[in-house]
Design a protein around this nucleic acid. Sequence first.
RNA 1: GCGCCUCUAGCUCAAUGGCAGAGCAACGGACUCUUAAUCCGCAGGUUCGGGGUUCAAGUCCCCGGAGGCGCACCA
Length: 499
Amino acid sequence: MTTVPYRFDQTADAAEVVARWSGLAAGEESGDQVSVAGRIMLSRPQGRLAFAELRDSSGAVQLFALDGVTRDFDAFKRLRLGDWVGASGEVVRTRRGELSVKIADWVLLAEARRGFGDKWRGVTDVETRFRQREVDLWANAESRRTLLLRSQLVRRMRERLWDKGFVEVETPILHPIPGGAHARPFVTHFRALDMDVFLRIAPELYLKRLVVGGFEKVFEIGRLFRNEGLSPRHNPEFTTLELYQAYADYHDMMAIVEELVSGLALDILGTTSLTYQGRPLDLTPPWRRATLTELVASETGLDVSVHSPRDTLEKWARDAGVEVERSWGPGKLLLELYEKTTEGGLWDPVFVYDYPKEVSPLARVHRDDPMLAERFEQVVAGRELVNAFSELVDPDEQLVRFEEQAAARDAGDEDAMVVDTDYVRALQHGLPPTGGLGLGIDRLVMLFSDTAHIREVISFPMMRPERVEGATAEGEEGAGGDQGATPEEVATGAVDGAR
RNA sequence: GCGCCUCUAGCUCAAUGGCAGAGCAACGGACUCUUAAUCCGCAGGUUCGGGGUUCAAGUCCCCGGAGGCGCACCA
């Protein structure tokens, strides 16, 4: 057993050392002492000298050890890649010009009993990268950058919303009734009340209840859970911003989205001219605004609208390859036609607005067309980033819409909503005109970090569980190696720790 | 769920059906200015698992597992 200290006094991080002594000339000694800490990422023993790259979260700095100067020099030379070390000494620049800490004293802070992969190529195996994300993060700078970008983006998002007078709130994650979206929930059981509860699929209804309660500008950033498939754009738990503003409509929500997203691009990337997956992507406002109907019409060349005869819409949808269900009305058919033919081809940001009322049970009916709702989706790079409405505020109409949903559910649509009488009662207390939006933070981070897969932007994405090896009576190990790590393998480590 | 592809040393990868290999890491040694240090040496394998064909299987066939990509799902 190696005994390591309980703490270490670090006086500077690697980036500070590199920055503060950048003026030091080759071969010069500063006379200044620092204590740094981090992992040994490269090691170049050289007889009675040794060089090592120490990396911490700020960057990297070279350690320079000398026999006769560095305490326990021989042990220092034996450090392995990945070992954590705290080291103290003078800041110098070597004769060959590398800024270094010339180590007088040092201490092992943790040994790396498992390796970190090829020191040049890192770790590329997807299984290792996401099952053992800690290895990926050390081995691959790009992975660190992406998660750091995510953190900065969420921080700036909060700051921007606070600055606009929005109040950040938290609403329940355990819901007695799943609501606020068209999706299948995860179910769990609450023992004290002997009742099933659902992990939230959306915070929408609770947030609007807070508006009823007098919070005129609220937002929540948090995790949602949907019991659906995994894909490059879908993880069962994902993070959204959801925001509500009293006295506002969906046009106001467009303005908020445009300003927020383009402003975040400037904050984080310094530009609104992005490259995503090799293609230029321009987030510079103003963004295009087009109705869903006109986009579908221009894409397909069909004289289409939610008022088209249902049979005609059904034929067009079938022609486009949609597997039509009998229960669908014209609104659902139009939406399917849009998604099949149009959505994926939208690249630069577009506000796609005026959705069929039929598929928007929480959105207010359009002020000019009773078949439509005041709803938009903001689409960029072929994906939905935002979904927003002028909120439905009328309790009687909300109840009717819920009942339509419940009927659809009885007809076999398992994702359809359930009547939420608590919510209807809340609306009876009066919800003022309100605009609301939901924005997928994971997808926004993907856009900004130029990553193609949602798991790149999630610290620990959902993976199929590792297969349990040797689940027989004696529990002997299978051939899973590092992937199917048994408790015994974990305990001993892949590499013998003798040193 | 469907289709295609992949799985070899700790990592990254080789191996016309014919003795399972390299680089890096690890381990032992040399080296007082290295930068993926270099040099010498040593060790490392249930080729994902099981079955089959064959004189001979990492390679071909079947079953299973894990993963990737695409589709479907995700209004």
